[in-house]
């Protein structure tokens, strides 16, 4: 047999097993049909128009008119408020959640950690709307809080239907989504790493900055993403707590579909919202990389050639 002769029995399949990849086909089809296709449809609608009172949309003439229309002063005001609430809310979540997660993962004895996680999950799995209503009860003019305020002679405070109420509501509602990823990362943090760092002469703060922080950075990023994205599109919290003063973009989009029956404009607004969220996420990802690059550069140790 010559070495270069082409094999007579060329590959009969690389492995003995059949291709398990096909198992993913049903989900792919399902999502293409009920997630991608509907999205493409509203993208299409957003280039159309609402020709008359009784028709929701019309695509006979394509234009960017709905996008121009979407950027009306009301929408812009609400949009900026949404952005503000989202950014502030996300940061507040991080500030509140990090010490909590750190305490749960590092300071609590292992046997209590499961219970602590369960305790975070119980409110999280309480109906989102219902726990928001809980805050509505607390903040309403007839609540025990208001009663107490009146008893102290401070009058009835205006708490409900303000931006502040929405801010409180979203921080509350999305806090578990920040705690859980942080906890999971911190839990995986090997305490021996910190011991090693202390052993190598770093103090507690230095150890935190140079060992803990770089390791938990991905968890922080996940938490920020998990909170910011749904917060930006929140529709329930401002509806229950915000009133007119605290409304958010989600409600604007919804009302075009529910009330105004203007699918074209509503679609354009939804696309704007989606694009804004993706833009912020991309911006954040770039920022995250930059921070990592700076840390790497700062901590860079060059290997001196010819020394070994």
């Amino acid at each position: 047999m010559t070495a270069v002769a082409l094999p007579a029995t060329r590959t009969r399949g690389r492995r003995f097993r059949w291709n398990v990849g096909v198992l993913a086909a049903p989900v792919a089809v399902w999502l293409l049909f009920f997630f991608v296709a509907p999205f493409v449809v509203i993208l299409w609608y957003s280039f159309g128009d609402k020709p008359s009172l009784y028709i929701t949309h019309d695509n006979s003439v394509l234009s960017l008119g709905r996008y121009v229309e979407a950027f009306n002063p009301t929408f812009v005001t609400v949009f900026l408020r949404t952005l503000q609430i989202s950014v502030v809310g996300t940061i507040l979540c991080l500030v509140i959640a990090f010490p909590m997660a750190y305490w749960m993962a590092v300071k609590l004895p292992a046997r209590f950690q499961g219970i602590a996680v369960a305790l975070v999950l119980v409110p999280y799995w309480t109906n989102f709307l219902v726990r928001t209503i809980g805050w509505q009860i607390v903040l309403s003019p007839t609540s025990f809080l208001a009663d107490a305020s009146r008893a102290l002679g401070l009058g009835t405070p205006q708490l409900l239907y303000t931006t502040g109420a929405v801010q409180l509501g979203v921080v509350y509602n999305y806090l578990p989504l920040m705690i859980l990823p942080l906890y999971v990362t911190l839990e995986r943090l090997d305490p021996r790493l910190l011991e090693a760092s202390r052993d190598l002469g770093a103090n507690a703060f230095e150890s935190f900055r140079r060992v803990t922080l770089p390791i938990v950075l991905p968890g922080v990023a996940a938490g920020l993403l998990l909170v910011f994205v749904p917060l930006m599109g929140d529709y329930i919290t401002p509806s229950v707590l915000g009133g007119a003063a605290g409304s958010m973009v989600g409600q604007q989009v919804a009302s075009q579909f529910n009330v105004a029956q203007n699918w074209a404009l509503g679609s354009a607004m939804a696309i704007v919202l989606m694009v804004a969220i993706i833009a912020v996420v991309v911006l954040f990802a770039l920022l995250f990389r930059l921070v990592k690059a700076i840390i790497d550069r700062f901590e860079h140790v060059a290997i001196v050639e010819g020394e070994a």
């Binding site: 094999p7 590959t11 003995f16």
Partner: peptide
Amino acid sequence: GGFELPDEGEVTIGGTAMGS
């Protein structure tokens, strides 16, 4: 064992060519 199939050549076990 049959977990990989040869790209060339043949494996025979107990006088039977294994093929694929």
